[in-house]
Design a protein around this nucleic acid. Structure first.
Lengths: 255, 255
DNA sequence: GAGTGGTCTAGACCACGGG
DNA sequence: CCGTGGTCTAGACCACTCT
Protein backbone atom coordinates (compact mmCIF):
# COMPACT_ATOMS: atom_id res chain seq x y z
CA UNK A 1 0.00 0.00 0.00
CA UNK A 2 2.32 2.74 -1.15
CA UNK A 3 1.49 6.02 -2.76
CA UNK A 4 1.51 4.62 -6.27
CA UNK A 5 -1.54 2.54 -5.52
CA UNK A 6 -3.69 5.63 -5.48
CA UNK A 7 -2.58 6.66 -8.96
CA UNK A 8 -3.09 3.16 -10.24
CA UNK A 9 -6.60 3.05 -8.88
CA UNK A 10 -7.39 6.19 -10.82
CA UNK A 11 -5.70 4.79 -13.89
CA UNK A 12 -7.71 1.61 -14.01
CA UNK A 13 -10.93 2.16 -12.10
CA UNK A 14 -11.81 5.14 -14.22
CA UNK A 15 -14.14 3.78 -16.85
CA UNK A 16 -13.09 6.56 -19.19
CA UNK A 17 -11.07 4.18 -21.35
CA UNK A 18 -13.95 1.81 -21.87
CA UNK A 19 -15.56 2.31 -25.24
CA UNK A 20 -18.83 0.80 -26.27
CA UNK A 21 -17.56 -0.25 -29.67
CA UNK A 22 -13.83 -0.27 -29.10
CA UNK A 23 -13.61 -3.97 -29.79
CA UNK A 24 -13.13 -6.74 -27.25
CA UNK A 25 -12.67 -5.57 -23.68
CA UNK A 26 -9.44 -7.48 -23.19
CA UNK A 27 -7.98 -5.61 -26.17
CA UNK A 28 -9.15 -2.27 -24.80
CA UNK A 29 -7.51 -3.04 -21.47
CA UNK A 30 -4.38 -4.29 -23.25
CA UNK A 31 -4.07 -1.11 -25.27
CA UNK A 32 -4.79 1.03 -22.22
CA UNK A 33 -2.02 -0.54 -20.15
CA UNK A 34 0.31 -0.64 -23.14
CA UNK A 35 -0.12 3.09 -23.65
CA UNK A 36 0.35 3.77 -19.94
CA UNK A 37 3.65 1.90 -19.97
CA UNK A 38 4.94 3.41 -23.18
CA UNK A 39 4.35 7.02 -22.18
CA UNK A 40 5.70 6.49 -18.69
CA UNK A 41 2.54 6.76 -16.60
CA UNK A 42 3.55 3.33 -15.35
CA UNK A 43 7.24 3.48 -14.51
CA UNK A 44 9.53 0.53 -15.06
CA UNK A 45 9.88 -2.10 -12.34
CA UNK A 46 6.80 -0.77 -10.58
CA UNK A 47 4.31 -3.45 -9.73
CA UNK A 48 0.91 -3.59 -11.32
CA UNK A 49 -2.20 -4.34 -9.30
CA UNK A 50 -2.83 -8.02 -8.74
CA UNK A 51 -5.00 -9.66 -11.35
CA UNK A 52 -7.93 -10.05 -8.98
CA UNK A 53 -7.65 -6.43 -7.92
CA UNK A 54 -7.37 -5.32 -11.52
CA UNK A 55 -10.51 -7.31 -12.26
CA UNK A 56 -12.51 -5.62 -9.55
CA UNK A 57 -11.10 -2.19 -10.44
CA UNK A 58 -12.06 -2.52 -14.07
CA UNK A 59 -15.27 -4.43 -13.54
CA UNK A 60 -14.00 -7.26 -15.73
CA UNK A 61 -13.59 -10.91 -14.90
CA UNK A 62 -10.18 -12.23 -13.99
CA UNK A 63 -10.08 -14.36 -17.14
CA UNK A 64 -10.48 -11.26 -19.28
CA UNK A 65 -7.82 -9.41 -17.32
CA UNK A 66 -5.51 -12.41 -17.78
CA UNK A 67 -6.03 -12.35 -21.53
CA UNK A 68 -4.93 -8.73 -21.64
CA UNK A 69 -1.99 -9.44 -19.35
CA UNK A 70 -0.83 -12.43 -21.38
CA UNK A 71 -0.55 -10.20 -24.45
CA UNK A 72 1.49 -7.67 -22.50
CA UNK A 73 3.75 -10.49 -21.35
CA UNK A 74 4.07 -11.77 -24.93
CA UNK A 75 5.06 -8.26 -26.00
CA UNK A 76 7.72 -8.17 -23.32
CA UNK A 77 6.17 -5.14 -21.65
CA UNK A 78 5.25 -6.97 -18.46
CA UNK A 79 6.93 -9.70 -16.43
CA UNK A 80 4.89 -11.95 -14.18
CA UNK A 81 6.26 -13.92 -11.23
CA UNK A 82 4.07 -16.51 -9.58
CA UNK A 83 3.54 -15.81 -5.94
CA UNK A 84 5.05 -12.38 -6.35
CA UNK A 85 3.20 -10.19 -8.79
CA UNK A 86 3.23 -8.46 -12.16
CA UNK A 87 5.82 -5.84 -12.99
CA UNK A 88 6.55 -3.42 -15.79
CA UNK A 89 9.50 -4.94 -17.63
CA UNK A 90 12.75 -3.01 -17.89
CA UNK A 91 12.89 -1.73 -21.44
CA UNK A 92 16.64 -1.42 -21.63
CA UNK A 93 16.52 -4.72 -23.51
CA UNK A 94 15.33 -2.85 -26.55
CA UNK A 95 18.69 -1.21 -26.93
CA UNK A 96 20.78 -4.28 -26.20
CA UNK A 97 18.97 -6.73 -28.40
CA UNK A 98 18.54 -4.07 -30.97
CA UNK A 99 21.00 -5.47 -33.43
CA UNK A 100 19.82 -8.62 -35.02
CA UNK A 101 16.39 -8.27 -33.53
CA UNK A 102 13.40 -8.86 -35.69
CA UNK A 103 11.56 -5.58 -35.81
CA UNK A 104 9.04 -3.82 -37.93
CA UNK A 105 9.74 -0.53 -39.62
CA UNK A 106 7.81 1.24 -36.91
CA UNK A 107 9.83 -0.35 -34.11
CA UNK A 108 13.04 0.24 -36.04
CA UNK A 109 12.32 3.94 -36.26
CA UNK A 110 11.31 4.16 -32.59
CA UNK A 111 14.65 2.63 -31.71
CA UNK A 112 16.42 5.29 -33.73
CA UNK A 113 14.44 7.99 -31.98
CA UNK A 114 12.47 9.02 -35.02
CA UNK A 115 8.77 9.32 -35.59
CA UNK A 116 7.47 7.06 -38.31
CA UNK A 117 4.53 7.59 -40.57
CA UNK A 118 3.36 5.88 -43.68
CA UNK A 119 1.20 6.49 -46.68
CA UNK A 120 -0.58 3.61 -48.35
CA UNK A 121 0.10 3.58 -52.07
CA UNK A 122 -1.94 0.51 -52.88
CA UNK A 123 -3.72 -2.14 -50.92
CA UNK A 124 -5.89 -5.11 -51.74
CA UNK A 125 -6.39 -8.84 -52.09
CA UNK A 126 -4.76 -10.61 -55.00
CA UNK A 127 -3.81 -13.99 -56.34
CA UNK A 128 -0.26 -14.80 -55.26
CA UNK A 129 2.59 -14.50 -57.72
CA UNK A 130 4.69 -17.62 -58.37
CA UNK A 131 7.46 -16.25 -56.14
CA UNK A 132 5.00 -15.58 -53.35
CA UNK A 133 3.61 -19.12 -53.63
CA UNK A 134 7.11 -20.51 -53.23
CA UNK A 135 8.28 -18.13 -50.52
CA UNK A 136 5.14 -18.37 -48.40
CA UNK A 137 4.42 -22.03 -49.11
CA UNK A 138 0.92 -21.34 -50.37
CA UNK A 139 -1.44 -23.46 -52.35
CA UNK A 140 -2.66 -21.87 -55.55
CA UNK A 141 -6.23 -21.53 -54.33
CA UNK A 142 -5.59 -19.13 -51.47
CA UNK A 143 -5.38 -15.40 -51.88
CA UNK A 144 -2.96 -12.92 -50.41
CA UNK A 145 -3.28 -9.47 -48.92
CA UNK A 146 -0.79 -7.07 -50.39
CA UNK A 147 -0.05 -3.55 -49.22
CA UNK A 148 2.42 -1.05 -50.61
CA UNK A 149 3.37 1.86 -48.41
CA UNK A 150 5.62 4.88 -48.54
CA UNK A 151 7.46 5.03 -45.23
CA UNK A 152 8.64 8.27 -43.66
CA UNK A 153 10.96 8.99 -40.74
CA UNK A 154 10.43 12.40 -39.19
CA UNK A 155 8.43 13.23 -42.29
CA UNK A 156 11.25 12.44 -44.71
CA UNK A 157 10.47 9.76 -47.33
CA UNK A 158 12.71 6.82 -46.54
CA UNK A 159 11.42 3.66 -48.15
CA UNK A 160 8.82 2.01 -50.34
CA UNK A 161 7.70 -1.28 -48.85
CA UNK A 162 5.41 -3.96 -50.24
CA UNK A 163 4.19 -6.60 -47.78
CA UNK A 164 2.41 -9.79 -48.77
CA UNK A 165 0.64 -12.11 -46.35
CA UNK A 166 -1.85 -14.89 -46.74
CA UNK A 167 -5.43 -13.78 -46.16
CA UNK A 168 -5.49 -16.42 -43.42
CA UNK A 169 -3.45 -14.04 -41.31
CA UNK A 170 -4.60 -10.69 -42.67
CA UNK A 171 -8.10 -11.01 -44.10
CA UNK A 172 -8.44 -7.30 -44.66
CA UNK A 173 -5.32 -5.27 -45.53
CA UNK A 174 -7.30 -2.04 -45.28
CA UNK A 175 -7.43 -2.49 -41.52
CA UNK A 176 -3.66 -2.11 -41.25
CA UNK A 177 -2.88 1.24 -39.71
CA UNK A 178 0.74 2.04 -39.05
CA UNK A 179 2.34 -1.16 -37.85
CA UNK A 180 1.81 -4.48 -39.54
CA UNK A 181 3.48 -6.33 -36.70
CA UNK A 182 1.30 -4.61 -34.14
CA UNK A 183 -1.74 -5.70 -36.10
CA UNK A 184 -0.50 -9.28 -36.17
CA UNK A 185 0.38 -9.13 -32.50
CA UNK A 186 -3.20 -8.33 -31.62
CA UNK A 187 -4.21 -11.57 -33.29
CA UNK A 188 -1.65 -13.40 -31.17
CA UNK A 189 0.69 -13.84 -34.14
CA UNK A 190 4.32 -12.83 -33.99
CA UNK A 191 7.11 -13.90 -36.35
CA UNK A 192 10.04 -15.43 -34.54
CA UNK A 193 12.62 -15.52 -37.33
CA UNK A 194 13.25 -13.79 -40.59
CA UNK A 195 15.69 -14.02 -43.45
CA UNK A 196 16.72 -10.79 -45.10
CA UNK A 197 18.40 -10.53 -48.44
CA UNK A 198 20.03 -7.16 -48.96
CA UNK A 199 21.17 -5.91 -52.29
CA UNK A 200 21.64 -2.56 -53.98
CA UNK A 201 19.89 -1.05 -56.97
CA UNK A 202 19.49 2.21 -58.82
CA UNK A 203 16.14 3.90 -58.34
CA UNK A 204 13.68 4.11 -61.22
CA UNK A 205 12.10 7.40 -62.11
CA UNK A 206 8.88 6.56 -60.27
CA UNK A 207 10.65 5.33 -57.16
CA UNK A 208 12.92 8.36 -57.08
CA UNK A 209 9.94 10.70 -57.34
CA UNK A 210 8.24 9.07 -54.36
CA UNK A 211 11.41 9.15 -52.29
CA UNK A 212 12.17 12.72 -53.38
CA UNK A 213 15.63 11.95 -54.72
CA UNK A 214 17.13 11.73 -58.18
CA UNK A 215 16.60 8.93 -60.66
CA UNK A 216 19.50 6.48 -60.59
CA UNK A 217 20.44 7.18 -56.97
CA UNK A 218 21.59 4.13 -55.05
CA UNK A 219 19.12 2.34 -52.80
CA UNK A 220 19.09 -0.70 -50.55
CA UNK A 221 16.86 -3.49 -51.81
CA UNK A 222 15.71 -5.51 -48.80
CA UNK A 223 13.68 -8.69 -49.23
CA UNK A 224 12.48 -10.24 -46.02
CA UNK A 225 10.71 -13.52 -45.38
CA UNK A 226 9.41 -13.90 -41.83
CA UNK A 227 8.62 -17.21 -40.18
CA UNK A 228 6.56 -18.37 -37.22
CA UNK A 229 8.23 -20.55 -34.61
CA UNK A 230 6.71 -23.57 -36.34
CA UNK A 231 8.79 -22.77 -39.42
CA UNK A 232 5.85 -21.66 -41.48
CA UNK A 233 6.44 -18.57 -43.62
CA UNK A 234 4.01 -15.82 -42.86
CA UNK A 235 5.22 -12.58 -44.37
CA UNK A 236 7.06 -11.53 -47.48
CA UNK A 237 8.19 -7.94 -47.58
CA UNK A 238 10.16 -6.24 -50.28
CA UNK A 239 11.46 -2.76 -49.65
CA UNK A 240 13.52 -0.10 -51.38
CA UNK A 241 15.38 2.14 -48.93
CA UNK A 242 17.16 5.39 -49.71
CA UNK A 243 20.87 4.64 -49.52
CA UNK A 244 21.86 8.16 -48.58
CA UNK A 245 20.04 8.28 -45.25
CA UNK A 246 19.29 4.70 -44.24
CA UNK A 247 21.66 1.99 -43.12
CA UNK A 248 20.99 -1.55 -42.00
CA UNK A 249 22.93 -2.79 -39.00
CA UNK A 250 23.57 -6.48 -38.39
CA UNK A 251 25.47 -8.38 -35.79
CA UNK A 252 27.50 -11.43 -36.78
CA UNK A 253 28.57 -14.14 -34.40
CA UNK A 254 30.67 -17.24 -34.20
CA UNK A 255 28.75 -20.32 -33.04
CA UNK B 1 -19.68 -36.98 -40.93
CA UNK B 2 -17.09 -38.45 -43.23
CA UNK B 3 -14.70 -41.31 -42.63
CA UNK B 4 -12.05 -39.14 -41.02
CA UNK B 5 -14.34 -38.45 -38.07
CA UNK B 6 -13.93 -42.00 -36.86
CA UNK B 7 -10.15 -41.74 -36.84
CA UNK B 8 -10.32 -38.39 -35.13
CA UNK B 9 -12.59 -39.75 -32.43
CA UNK B 10 -10.04 -42.44 -31.70
CA UNK B 11 -7.25 -39.88 -31.83
CA UNK B 12 -8.79 -37.59 -29.27
CA UNK B 13 -11.21 -39.57 -27.14
CA UNK B 14 -8.56 -42.11 -26.28
CA UNK B 15 -7.28 -41.05 -22.92
CA UNK B 16 -3.95 -42.69 -23.66
CA UNK B 17 -2.27 -39.32 -24.19
CA UNK B 18 -3.38 -37.98 -20.84
CA UNK B 19 -0.62 -38.19 -18.28
CA UNK B 20 -1.08 -37.55 -14.63
CA UNK B 21 2.05 -35.48 -14.35
CA UNK B 22 2.53 -34.37 -17.94
CA UNK B 23 2.02 -30.76 -17.01
CA UNK B 24 -1.02 -28.61 -17.75
CA UNK B 25 -3.76 -30.35 -19.70
CA UNK B 26 -3.88 -27.65 -22.40
CA UNK B 27 -0.20 -28.26 -23.04
CA UNK B 28 -0.68 -32.01 -23.24
CA UNK B 29 -3.48 -31.54 -25.75
CA UNK B 30 -1.39 -29.00 -27.65
CA UNK B 31 1.56 -31.37 -27.89
CA UNK B 32 -0.71 -34.25 -28.85
CA UNK B 33 -2.30 -32.41 -31.75
CA UNK B 34 1.02 -30.89 -32.75
CA UNK B 35 2.58 -34.35 -32.99
CA UNK B 36 -0.42 -35.67 -34.92
CA UNK B 37 -0.07 -32.90 -37.47
CA UNK B 38 3.68 -33.16 -37.82
CA UNK B 39 3.78 -36.89 -38.43
CA UNK B 40 0.87 -36.77 -40.82
CA UNK B 41 -1.83 -38.49 -38.78
CA UNK B 42 -3.80 -35.31 -39.38
CA UNK B 43 -3.46 -34.49 -43.07
CA UNK B 44 -3.22 -30.92 -44.29
CA UNK B 45 -6.40 -28.96 -44.99
CA UNK B 46 -8.47 -31.56 -43.15
CA UNK B 47 -10.85 -30.08 -40.63
CA UNK B 48 -10.42 -30.66 -36.93
CA UNK B 49 -13.37 -31.40 -34.66
CA UNK B 50 -15.23 -28.31 -33.51
CA UNK B 51 -14.00 -26.89 -30.22
CA UNK B 52 -17.10 -28.00 -28.34
CA UNK B 53 -16.82 -31.49 -29.78
CA UNK B 54 -13.14 -31.63 -28.96
CA UNK B 55 -14.00 -30.63 -25.41
CA UNK B 56 -16.48 -33.45 -24.97
CA UNK B 57 -14.17 -35.95 -26.68
CA UNK B 58 -11.27 -35.13 -24.42
CA UNK B 59 -13.29 -34.52 -21.29
CA UNK B 60 -11.86 -31.01 -21.00
CA UNK B 61 -13.65 -27.70 -20.86
CA UNK B 62 -13.91 -25.62 -23.99
CA UNK B 63 -11.74 -22.90 -22.45
CA UNK B 64 -8.93 -25.39 -22.01
CA UNK B 65 -9.35 -26.69 -25.55
CA UNK B 66 -9.24 -23.11 -26.82
CA UNK B 67 -5.99 -22.47 -24.98
CA UNK B 68 -4.41 -25.43 -26.75
CA UNK B 69 -5.87 -24.36 -30.09
CA UNK B 70 -4.68 -20.79 -29.73
CA UNK B 71 -1.12 -22.04 -29.36
CA UNK B 72 -1.47 -24.15 -32.48
CA UNK B 73 -2.79 -21.09 -34.31
CA UNK B 74 0.09 -18.96 -33.03
CA UNK B 75 2.48 -21.61 -34.34
CA UNK B 76 0.79 -21.50 -37.72
CA UNK B 77 -0.11 -25.19 -37.56
CA UNK B 78 -3.85 -24.56 -37.49
CA UNK B 79 -6.04 -21.97 -39.15
CA UNK B 80 -9.39 -21.05 -37.67
CA UNK B 81 -12.25 -19.45 -39.54
CA UNK B 82 -15.19 -18.12 -37.59
CA UNK B 83 -18.43 -19.74 -38.62
CA UNK B 84 -16.57 -22.36 -40.57
CA UNK B 85 -14.18 -24.39 -38.46
CA UNK B 86 -10.56 -25.24 -37.66
CA UNK B 87 -8.24 -26.66 -40.28
CA UNK B 88 -4.73 -28.06 -40.43
CA UNK B 89 -2.60 -25.39 -42.10
CA UNK B 90 -0.38 -26.28 -45.06
CA UNK B 91 3.06 -27.05 -43.65
CA UNK B 92 6.30 -25.51 -44.60
CA UNK B 93 9.80 -26.79 -44.97
CA UNK B 94 12.28 -26.24 -42.17
CA UNK B 95 14.56 -23.30 -42.34
CA UNK B 96 18.10 -23.32 -43.41
CA UNK B 97 20.21 -22.80 -40.37
CA UNK B 98 22.79 -20.52 -39.04
CA UNK B 99 23.06 -17.65 -41.38
CA UNK B 100 24.51 -14.50 -39.96
CA UNK B 101 27.68 -16.39 -39.21
CA UNK B 102 30.82 -14.36 -38.97
CA UNK B 103 32.85 -15.26 -42.01
CA UNK B 104 35.58 -13.80 -44.14
CA UNK B 105 35.14 -13.00 -47.80
CA UNK B 106 36.95 -16.21 -48.67
CA UNK B 107 34.67 -18.35 -46.49
CA UNK B 108 31.63 -16.47 -47.75
CA UNK B 109 32.51 -17.32 -51.35
CA UNK B 110 33.23 -20.94 -50.49
CA UNK B 111 29.77 -21.19 -48.98
CA UNK B 112 28.29 -19.89 -52.20
CA UNK B 113 30.28 -22.39 -54.20
CA UNK B 114 32.53 -19.89 -55.89
CA UNK B 115 36.30 -19.60 -56.10
CA UNK B 116 37.68 -16.43 -54.63
CA UNK B 117 40.76 -14.52 -55.58
CA UNK B 118 42.05 -11.11 -54.70
CA UNK B 119 44.42 -8.49 -55.98
CA UNK B 120 46.15 -6.16 -53.57
CA UNK B 121 45.69 -2.55 -54.58
CA UNK B 122 47.61 -0.98 -51.72
CA UNK B 123 49.18 -2.15 -48.54
CA UNK B 124 51.22 -0.58 -45.77
CA UNK B 125 51.58 0.73 -42.26
CA UNK B 126 50.00 4.06 -41.40
CA UNK B 127 48.94 6.29 -38.58
CA UNK B 128 45.30 5.62 -37.71
CA UNK B 129 42.60 7.99 -38.84
CA UNK B 130 40.38 9.52 -36.16
CA UNK B 131 37.57 7.11 -37.05
CA UNK B 132 39.90 4.17 -36.78
CA UNK B 133 41.08 5.34 -33.37
CA UNK B 134 37.51 5.47 -32.15
CA UNK B 135 36.32 2.25 -33.79
CA UNK B 136 39.33 0.17 -32.78
CA UNK B 137 39.85 1.82 -29.42
CA UNK B 138 43.44 2.72 -30.14
CA UNK B 139 45.80 5.11 -28.49
CA UNK B 140 47.30 7.69 -30.80
CA UNK B 141 50.81 6.32 -30.57
CA UNK B 142 50.17 2.92 -32.17
CA UNK B 143 50.22 2.32 -35.88
CA UNK B 144 47.87 0.31 -38.06
CA UNK B 145 48.28 -2.05 -40.97
CA UNK B 146 45.97 -1.22 -43.83
CA UNK B 147 45.34 -3.28 -46.94
CA UNK B 148 43.05 -2.57 -49.87
CA UNK B 149 42.14 -5.42 -52.13
CA UNK B 150 40.03 -6.05 -55.21
CA UNK B 151 37.99 -9.19 -54.55
CA UNK B 152 36.88 -11.54 -57.30
CA UNK B 153 34.42 -14.44 -57.36
CA UNK B 154 35.02 -16.90 -60.18
CA UNK B 155 37.25 -14.26 -61.70
CA UNK B 156 34.54 -11.57 -61.75
CA UNK B 157 35.34 -8.38 -59.86
CA UNK B 158 32.93 -8.21 -56.94
CA UNK B 159 34.17 -5.86 -54.27
CA UNK B 160 36.81 -3.41 -53.10
CA UNK B 161 37.71 -3.97 -49.48
CA UNK B 162 39.93 -2.00 -47.14
CA UNK B 163 40.89 -3.66 -43.87
CA UNK B 164 42.56 -1.94 -40.96
CA UNK B 165 44.09 -3.68 -37.96
CA UNK B 166 46.45 -2.65 -35.23
CA UNK B 167 50.06 -3.63 -35.92
CA UNK B 168 49.85 -5.55 -32.64
CA UNK B 169 47.85 -8.15 -34.50
CA UNK B 170 49.22 -7.80 -38.02
CA UNK B 171 52.76 -6.47 -37.89
CA UNK B 172 53.32 -6.96 -41.61
CA UNK B 173 50.36 -6.55 -43.99
CA UNK B 174 52.45 -7.74 -46.93
CA UNK B 175 52.34 -11.23 -45.50
CA UNK B 176 48.60 -11.48 -46.03
CA UNK B 177 47.88 -13.81 -48.87
CA UNK B 178 44.25 -14.51 -49.67
CA UNK B 179 42.44 -14.75 -46.38
CA UNK B 180 42.93 -12.25 -43.59
CA UNK B 181 41.02 -14.42 -41.14
CA UNK B 182 43.15 -17.43 -41.98
CA UNK B 183 46.22 -15.37 -41.28
CA UNK B 184 44.87 -14.27 -37.91
CA UNK B 185 43.79 -17.80 -37.11
CA UNK B 186 47.36 -19.00 -37.43
CA UNK B 187 48.27 -16.58 -34.68
CA UNK B 188 45.48 -17.98 -32.53
CA UNK B 189 43.33 -14.93 -33.10
CA UNK B 190 39.75 -15.17 -34.25
CA UNK B 191 37.04 -12.55 -33.97
CA UNK B 192 33.98 -13.81 -32.17
CA UNK B 193 31.56 -11.06 -33.01
CA UNK B 194 31.15 -8.28 -35.53
CA UNK B 195 28.87 -5.37 -36.22
CA UNK B 196 28.08 -4.59 -39.83
CA UNK B 197 26.59 -1.37 -41.10
CA UNK B 198 25.15 -1.72 -44.57
CA UNK B 199 24.25 1.19 -46.76
CA UNK B 200 24.03 1.93 -50.48
CA UNK B 201 26.03 4.30 -52.63
CA UNK B 202 26.69 5.17 -56.23
CA UNK B 203 30.09 4.10 -57.54
CA UNK B 204 32.71 6.69 -58.36
CA UNK B 205 34.50 6.58 -61.68
CA UNK B 206 37.56 4.88 -60.20
CA UNK B 207 35.56 2.30 -58.28
CA UNK B 208 33.41 1.52 -61.30
CA UNK B 209 36.49 0.98 -63.45
CA UNK B 210 37.96 -1.51 -60.98
CA UNK B 211 34.68 -3.38 -60.68
CA UNK B 212 34.14 -3.26 -64.44
CA UNK B 213 30.74 -1.61 -64.27
CA UNK B 214 29.44 1.86 -65.08
CA UNK B 215 29.99 4.97 -63.02
CA UNK B 216 26.97 5.70 -60.82
CA UNK B 217 25.85 2.07 -60.58
CA UNK B 218 24.44 1.10 -57.19
CA UNK B 219 26.69 -0.67 -54.71
CA UNK B 220 26.48 -1.99 -51.18
CA UNK B 221 28.64 -0.15 -48.71
CA UNK B 222 29.52 -2.52 -45.88
CA UNK B 223 31.42 -1.34 -42.82
CA UNK B 224 32.38 -4.04 -40.38
CA UNK B 225 33.95 -3.83 -36.95
CA UNK B 226 35.05 -7.19 -35.57
CA UNK B 227 35.61 -7.93 -31.89
CA UNK B 228 37.48 -10.54 -29.88
CA UNK B 229 35.61 -12.45 -27.23
CA UNK B 230 37.18 -10.10 -24.70
CA UNK B 231 35.24 -7.28 -26.31
CA UNK B 232 38.28 -5.62 -27.80
CA UNK B 233 37.88 -4.35 -31.36
CA UNK B 234 40.40 -5.89 -33.69
CA UNK B 235 39.41 -5.29 -37.29
CA UNK B 236 37.79 -2.49 -39.23
CA UNK B 237 36.84 -3.33 -42.79
CA UNK B 238 35.10 -1.12 -45.27
CA UNK B 239 33.94 -2.64 -48.52
CA UNK B 240 32.11 -1.62 -51.65
CA UNK B 241 30.20 -4.50 -53.24
CA UNK B 242 28.62 -4.58 -56.69
CA UNK B 243 24.87 -4.38 -56.14
CA UNK B 244 23.98 -6.24 -59.31
CA UNK B 245 25.62 -9.54 -58.41
CA UNK B 246 26.14 -9.54 -54.66
CA UNK B 247 23.59 -9.76 -51.89
CA UNK B 248 24.03 -9.90 -48.15
CA UNK B 249 21.87 -12.37 -46.27
CA UNK B 250 21.05 -11.91 -42.59
CA UNK B 251 18.91 -13.83 -40.17
CA UNK B 252 16.86 -11.95 -37.62
CA UNK B 253 15.50 -13.45 -34.46
CA UNK B 254 13.17 -12.75 -31.61
CA UNK B 255 14.35 -13.52 -28.10
C1' DG C 1 -0.72 -17.88 6.45
C1' DA C 2 -1.92 -14.56 3.20
C1' DG C 3 -1.39 -13.22 -1.39
C1' DT C 4 0.13 -14.10 -6.01
C1' DG C 5 -0.04 -16.07 -10.66
C1' DG C 6 -1.35 -20.70 -13.19
C1' DT C 7 -4.88 -23.75 -14.32
C1' DC C 8 -9.58 -25.32 -14.99
C1' DT C 9 -14.67 -25.56 -15.16
C1' DA C 10 -19.69 -24.90 -16.74
C1' DG C 11 -22.38 -22.04 -18.80
C1' DA C 12 -23.67 -17.90 -21.51
C1' DC C 13 -24.18 -14.53 -25.41
C1' DC C 14 -22.41 -12.63 -29.77
C1' DA C 15 -20.90 -12.35 -34.82
C1' DC C 16 -20.16 -14.69 -38.62
C1' DG C 17 -20.55 -18.39 -42.50
C1' DG C 18 -22.82 -21.77 -45.03
C1' DG C 19 -26.84 -24.61 -46.41
C1' DC D 1 -31.53 -21.54 -39.80
C1' DC D 2 -27.80 -23.99 -37.15
C1' DG D 3 -23.01 -24.63 -36.18
C1' DT D 4 -18.76 -22.28 -35.90
C1' DG D 5 -15.24 -19.63 -33.49
C1' DG D 6 -14.83 -15.16 -30.37
C1' DT D 7 -15.79 -13.21 -26.07
C1' DC D 8 -16.99 -13.12 -21.23
C1' DT D 9 -18.34 -14.45 -16.46
C1' DA D 10 -18.10 -16.28 -11.48
C1' DG D 11 -16.05 -19.31 -8.92
C1' DA D 12 -12.71 -22.94 -7.75
C1' DC D 13 -8.25 -25.32 -6.62
C1' DC D 14 -3.20 -25.56 -6.97
C1' DA D 15 1.79 -24.15 -6.59
C1' DC D 16 4.49 -20.80 -5.46
C1' DT D 17 6.68 -16.56 -2.79
C1' DC D 18 7.10 -13.62 0.71
C1' DT D 19 6.93 -12.47 5.53
Amino acid sequence: MDATDIDQSELFSATSWQQRSGGPRYLQLYRHIQAAIKDGRLAVTTSLPAERELASLTGLSRVTVRKAMSQLVADGLVVQRRGSGSFVAPQMKRMEQSLSALTSFTEDMQRRGKTSSSETLSCGIYLPSPEEIVALGLTSDVQVSRITRLRRADGVPLAIETSTLSTEFVPDPNRIETSLYEELSQEGIRPSRAIQRISACNLSEDQAALLEVSEGDAALLIDRTAYLSSGRAIELTSGVYRGDIYDFVAELRNA
